[in-house]
Design a protein around this nucleic acid. Structure first.
Length: 203
DNA sequence: TGCCAGGCCCTCTTTAGGGCCTT
């Protein structure tokens, strides 16, 4: 069993929505959580080899000028592979970050076999009362720590880390069981919403 | 030239459509 509070929480900023359409990562941010505490962090801009459009510059605050002198994606992703080691991973809307992680790792022939959990899928199951499940909304809704920066990789990864810890505490209170395993969380995110309550009650 | 993501999840569903999320 792998503890659910022993993970790397990550967030990519990218040139667009799909690596299948040629989009690349421009920033990776991550925090390492051990026993529910953030013990390390990683943040690097990376030069995607082409200009980013004005929407992305405005959305992220990452300008083409900032990317000019950044290391290329391959260099940064090799360092990031060392950072995550064999930790399991968490991201908010993980399907998005996973496809960029897989695409960038494939470019450097790095094989990663850890598991990936999604804080958005978890929120839909255990906080159905939330107004919506955007990261910024959940940070406000749960009154989580924030420095007011959004859409930068380390800031978003850090907020997702606090969200993840809050979600684990919620599940522990509902199930009266602790510690939780990463596999149990994956089970919850894969089940229909209607079955979550009874699953937690019998955990 | 024109087009351009995709998985999740709900419902007026499953022979489908559309909103939610991520950049």
């Amino acid at each position: 069993m792998t503890p659910a509070n022993h993970v790397v929480i990550l967030d990519f900023e990218t040139t667009g929505l799909s690596p299948d359409n040629g989009d690349r990562a421009i920033e990776i941010g991550a925090v390492k959580m051990v026993d529910g505490k953030i013990v390390d962090s990683f943040q690097q801009l990376m030069n995607p080899g082409r200009r980013v459009n004005s929407f992305i510059e405005n959305y992220t605050g990452i300008s083409n000028q900032m990317l000019l002198n950044a290391d290329n994606c391959e260099t940064v992703m090799a360092d990031f592979a060392d950072f995550i080691g064999d930790f399991n991973l968490v991201a908010h809307n993980a399907s998005f970050d996973k496809k960029f992680l897989d695409a960038e790792f494939q470019r450097i022939n790095h094989c990663y076999n850890g598991k990936f959990a999604c804080s958005l899928l978890l929120s839909r199951r255990i906080h159905q009362d939330a107004p919506n499940h955007k990261l910024g909304t959940l940070v406000d809704y749960h009154q989580l720590p924030t420095d007011g920066v959004f859409h930068r990789a380390l800031a978003d990864a850090t907020m997702t880390g606090y969200l993840w810890q809050h979600q684990l505490e919620t599940i522990e209170q509902l199930s009266k069981k602790a510690p939780l395993s990463f596999e149990q969380i994956l089970t919850i995110t894969a089940m229909p919403k209607a079955k979550v309550a009874s699953y937690l009650a019998n955990l």
